[in-house]
Structures are given as structure tokens and as C-alpha cells.
Amino acid sequence: DIAKAIINLAVYGKAQNRSYERLALLVDTVGPRLSGSKNLEKAIQIMYQNLQRDGLENVHLEPVRIPHWERGEESAVMLEPRTHKIAMLGLGSSIRTPPEGITAEVLVVTSFDELQRRASEARGKIVVYNQPYVNYSKTVQYRTQGAVEAAKVGALASLIRSVASFSIYSPHTGIQEYQDGVPKIPTACITVEDAEMMSRMAARGIKIVIQLKMVEKTYPDADSFNTVAEITGSKYPEQVVLVSGHLDSWDVGQGAMDDGGGVFISWEALSLIKDLGLRPKRTLRLVLWTAEEQGGIGAFQYYQLHKVNVSNYSLVMESDAGTFLPTGLQFTGSEKARAIMEEVMSLLQPLNITQVLSHGEGTDINFWIQAGVPGASLLDDLYKYFFFHHSYGDTMTVMDPKQMNVAAAVWAVVSYVVADMEEMLPRS
């Protein structure tokens, strides 16, 4: 009845709302935690103390180097056909505009294909992408590649409709990439509303002119840490079940949902197991990644350092898609392993959360999954998640303590049982 004990403690017992309260304290104290920022390093130090104070074992910080880009003053104003201030957020790693800004006519397109078809019109313009939202993985291509594709056809800057499932005039940010040999141009996201408005204007043949000013700055890479804590295994201590979330966030809102929720339910999983006096046969390792938003930079260096032990990792878990009410566990692994995970998830029947779905993944754990280690991630209401993702709305106000309790219970049961089974999860 260990599973019931974990569920009772997390959802009905004295640990109720603990992960929510811990998260609120951190994000209210520190705020957003952009890669390379002092906020992030402050959060890492606070978590280091938290994990020690919680009595977890082998608490340590593993040094890594991470990108350091900072947002400066930024503004976009539509000058024609009328004056309209455009809410915007520069994209991570974007270059700045000249001091006087870029004032240019706009070309509105709804896809890369349309941009190609109308390439001859793009030279010297600001390209506005009004791409429809399909799902995050498909639509994010416009955020990450928008500047490169626009620069290839001679554009001066790109403004991209926020990758969001819903908008209340809320711009979203995120990382974007330049490409060797292609001129770097400033790039930012605008709101769904403004992208759609300019699309309508363009369809009526109205000329649109925007003045864009961005004072972003890229610094040399900064020092940072992945934060690690454990419950050392009682029988196979060298074997590991890794449970994780990322401590960095974008520089908007509080980073409570992305990925404060994942961090704190992962910590809560170890706290629940420790509170019950349990010690699994394998080591349960909590890792709080740094610089995930820049492409899993901290996690990649952790993988490089620890991959020598890849055969000792039974399961890697990352929660980085929200901690609203879970609908199931996403899993990647062999059929045998999946069958075992279905049995493990059946222990969560009391919460009626027993589904095992495909596509277990996480930017920070994908390195291990590609090396053959079974991987798991928490699935919840992704439609709601992308309302707030990478926007000023990512605050404690979207978090729900009861839902976090349930998410923590799922995370704790799965990680503990897999860590305590006599055999590791099979890979063939």
C-alpha cells in the first residue's frame, strides 16, 4: 500500500499544498529566472539551501556554462495606416536594431511557403508572420526560424505571431536561432490580435509601416549550475531513476508554470518518499536543470559528464509541460517497458490517472532517451498550458495547489516504484 500512502500524504495528508507553497515562496521572492541572470543564480542558491534543509542526500551543484542574453528597451509602433502601439517581446538571442530603430513597410504572410512565393516583395521590409496555431511543435518553427527565413529574402526584421493557443493581447517570447551565412535580423513576437489585424489590413491592400526598436544584448556565456539532490538507493545505489524539472525561465511573468511546477513537484516527490521513511533500492536523483529554455544547455553538459553511466539509468523523468491536473504519463521505451509502466500507473487508480501515452520526452532528458534510456513526462491540459507559456501570464495565479498535489503524487508513485523494483526497466 505504498502507493496509497504516497497518494494520501500528497493529496489528503499533511503534505497537501506543500509544493504550491514552496513554489510561491521562490517565485515571489526571486521572480523570473532568465539564463545568465542574477535571478537564476539566486534561485539556484535558494534551492541548494532548500534541498539541504529538507534533509535530502548528496545535495550539490554541478557547474556548467550557459548563454547570457538580456532584453533591453523594445517597442514596435504601427505608423501607417494609423498610429498603434504594438505589444511585443523580443526573442531570445535576437540582435538589436540600430539606435534609430527600423522603420519599414510590412509584408504579412501566413506561412513560410507564402513567404517563398512572395520573396521578391520582402526585400527591405519587416516580415510579419500570421501563422495559424496548429500545435506547439509545428507552430514554434515560425518563432525559431522566422528571422532566418525572412533574412534569406532580404527582410530587415521579423515579427511573429505569438505561438499561443489563446491570447488576451499577450505576447509570448522564446528562443530563436540564427543560421551561419544568413544575415542576422532583429526578431520578436507580437500578439495574435495584432498579427491578425495586420493580416486583414494587408488583405484589403492597405499599406502598413512599423517602427521597431530593440536594445537587446548578448553577453559572454555565464557560470551556472545544475542542482542535484538524492535519496541514495538501499541495494543498487549506483543505479538511478532521475526526476527533474528546469529552474530557469523566461524573463516574463514568474516562470511559475514553466517550469516552476515541474521543479517543485519533482522536489515534492523526494520529500514525500522521505517523509514516509522510504528508501528505494535504486538511487532517486532530483536534477533541477539550468538554461533549458536556451535548448537544454545545462542538461547537455550533465549528459556529457554522466553518459558514461547511461546503462545505470533505469528511467529519466521530466515535468516541463505544466502541472495542472494530470491526464496521464507520457512514456518512451520498449514494449516490455511500456507494459511494466502500465502496471505502475495502475497503482494510481485511486486518482483515476492510469493512462500511459506515447512520446515521453523533455528537452533536458531527450539526450538520455535517444541513448536508449526509457523516458517519461507528465501530460496535462496542454491547450491551457499554451495560453500562458512564455508570457507575462506565467505566474502563480495560473497554478492550482490541488492539481499540483495530484501531479506530485503521480510523480512520486512512478519514480519510487520504478526505483524500488528488483529489476531495471528493460530496454529491448
Binding site: 500500500d1 505504498i2 502507493a3 496509497k4 543498487y236 543505479q239 533500492k281 546503462s311 545505470n312 533505469s314 516490455k336 507494459a339 511494466i340 502496471e343 505502475v344 495502475s346 497503482l347 487508480q349 536508449g372 508513485v413 519510487y416 516504484v417 524500488d420 523494483m421 528488483e422 529489476e423 531495471m424 528493460p426 530496454r427 529491448s428
Partner: peptide, 24 residues
């Protein structure tokens, strides 16, 4: 030692099921 990677499990799936059930 417990079996990992491409090793051969020493247990039948039924035994693994019963082991997991013991946590419930």
C-alpha cells in the same frame, strides 16, 4: 545484480506484475 540494458530479465512478466501490485 539486477538486469539492465539488453540483458535478459530473470523474471516473467507475471512476476513483475505481482511485484508492482505489491506496492498497491
Amino acid at each position: 545484480k539486477s538486469i539492465y540494458k539488453n540483458g535478459i530479465s530473470k523474471r516473467t512478466f507475471q512476476e513483475i506484475k505481482e511485484e508492482i501490485a505489491s506496492y498497491g
